[in-house]
Amino acid sequence: MATTGVMRPGHIQLRVLDLDESVEFYKNVLGLVETGRDAAGRVYFKAWDERDHNSVVLRQADRAGMDLIGFKVKDKATLEKLDKDLQAYGVSTERIPAGELLETGERVRFTIPTGHVLELYADKTDVGNGQPYTNPDPWIPASEHGIGPHRFDHCLLYGPNLEDTLKLFTEVLGFHLVERVLMEDGKSLLAMFISCSHKAHDLAFVCHPEPGKLHHLSFLLGTWEQVLRAADIMSMNRVSIDIGPTRHGITRGTTIYAFDPSGNRFETFAGGYETYPDHAPITWTFDQVGPAIFYHDRKLNERFLSVVT
């Protein structure tokens, strides 16, 4: 599939309760690379193999959670087109000037029916992954620091109005539905996993009465062995682990859920399959939600549906 419109999740701005403690965690336990700090006090990170300047932005606040998630689009013309398409669809958009987020171009910001703030942008400075674009080595020492994920990969968001949200993402933003979990009625969406690329999910949602909640942000690892290594590093550092290492039925990814020092859940995962827009979506019925989420335990843990920030 040619990725022509919305390409990938590019940045997430997270609220943390204690900035210094969180910077130490994201830099030395998770193993992201700090790339900058701005006048507002926000701290910027990227994973070692990402090329753009930032993917995770921390902001100190009095509550945990997610401020916004930004998706990179192919170019400026795509950004202009999508802004017009969103407005024509009835979504009001706002322009955030270039530079408000370090090394990031103009952003188109809007709120989706689940209550989350989304942004589209076309430009973010390419700072590279520590390797030249000519004759690079396969990895660098930074890739072994901490858990050392390859990239910020996707998010699972909790909020209401999943059907309207799916329509917006598929009809305006070019996403396709990859997997879904149905409610007891066999019709309404309990959860959905959508992609704008080859990835099994670029974004996921679970139906939840409170709008705008973060269930987790996810970081990609290379192998199951690295998932086990991540669990070891979490235990060495007394990181609060939610569940795992285990496997998801949905997307087939191998995974650990854990919490950052402010209680924002994060995932380190590997694997899953590749998807194309012509693939029929996979459906999980309500009675099989256990193995769909946690394939080995075959039931949800008590935190999955109730612990969000």
Partner: peptide, 12 residues
């Protein structure tokens, strides 16, 4: 006591 995030963020 119910156990949630253990980080002061989720209120559980």
């Amino acid at each position: 006591i119910p156990v949630g995030c253990r980080g002061g963020g989720c209120g559980v």
